[in-house]
Design a protein around this nucleic acid. Structure first.
Lengths: 189, 189
DNA sequence: GGAATCCTTTGATAATTATCAAAATCGATC
DNA sequence: GATCGATTTTGATAATTATCAAAGGATTCC
């Protein structure tokens, strides 16, 4: 049982056959820094489970990159807007450092859902999990100041500052790089 | 086949038994204006499908109400953060005008999932649908100015201005009531 | 090790939006 | 249709944050 299947198995206990069926449509890859997993305008056909490493999802706003979120080890990253609709994505996915991923070819999953109801359940739980993450992110913007969002990000990925450029973090927090720099320096209102 | 089951049936064709099983755990109600369907701190145990009417989801921020979203006819409304986690919700749900709802007792759905894989699929598709809605809302804030968000809301619920107080709309858009008032008056930068 | 490049910080200014207060408008009621 | 209360608009000011420019640090590459 590989790392990815093991992760899934802890969410829902899989049968041997269903695990094999998932394995069948999954590809393991080691990706170097700067790899692009998706460019906006493309249709996203897989989702990626990070065994280790770091990825960034971003979009372009007025010609500038804006980070939507970061994904680190044991997280799933994908352009879900495109994956589930078949429409071109607005998002880009970029590998920020040497990363190992399990890429599941989602466009091949329909027959697996048909054959293995337990996988359908797994799918439901995974999307539910991701819904809750997105809801958390909404709440982050709803309830927290940029300063608090910054602190939460540090809790989530403590070494993010060493791993990612400041401007990419600032756009994730919804502020300018200069403002983040001042927050870090202990800028008080 | 009632209105709600018919709606679900169009997403996934249901068997008679599975439709009956869903019907079993659903309650139809007519709710007057100002009814509270959920208060923050409560655990949300059902989701509500609006046959007609209007509801509002909001939370408190610094003692003030902030609208998270509006739900109108043929939409599902609930505090999903609580529904799926069993934890108390931060959200409040309020009926804004005479509304007919089908309330599904989600805490009774587990055995239905077990027995009817087609309902599990339905559940997966519904949560996926709602994920995409939330993603749209994130993008709305990511890509659009308050002015554009206001225009989008008008497209979605054209008569919202006649149905909801301005301050509730302003907090949905993430701006002060005064600023929204000025936008409406044709305030140009 | 030093030049060149990239990234971060700092300073000054401008734009955006909130806040507070008051005036105007709307709506329901008698 | 006049009045009371609620809602919305308008005006003035203040706070927040962005932007632009320049300086300071760090990193890489030969």
């Amino acid at each position: 049982m590989n790392y990815f299947i093991n992760y899934l198995d802890q969410i829902v206990a899989l049968t041997e056959e269903s695990a094999a069926a998932i394995d069948e449509i999954t590809i393991y890859r080691s990706l170097p820094k700067h790899t692009s997993l998706l460019q906006n305008g493309d249709v996203c056909k897989e989702f990626h489970f990070l065994e280790k490493g770091l990825a960034r999802v971003f979009y372009y706003k007025d010609g500038k990159e804006v980070t939507a979120w970061f994904a680190s080890a044991n997280q799933i990253v994908s352009a879900i807007d495109s994956l589930f609709t078949g429409k071109p994505s607005l998002y880009n996915i970029e590998i920020l450092e040497e990363t190992s991923v399990w890429s599941l070819q989602y466009h091949k999953i329909e027959p697996v859902f048909e054959k293995h109801p337990i996988v359908e359940r797994l799918g439901r739980l995974l999307i539910t999990q991701n819904y809750l993450l997105l809801d958390e992110r909404m709440k982050l913007f709803a309830f927290c100041t940029a300063e608090e969002r910054y602190e939460r990000l540090l809790l989530q990925i403590p070494d993010i500052l060493q791993r990612v450029k400041l401007g990419q973090i600032a756009s994730y927090l919804g502020i300018s790089q200069e403002h983040l720099s001042r927050i870090r320096a202990g800028y008080k209102k």
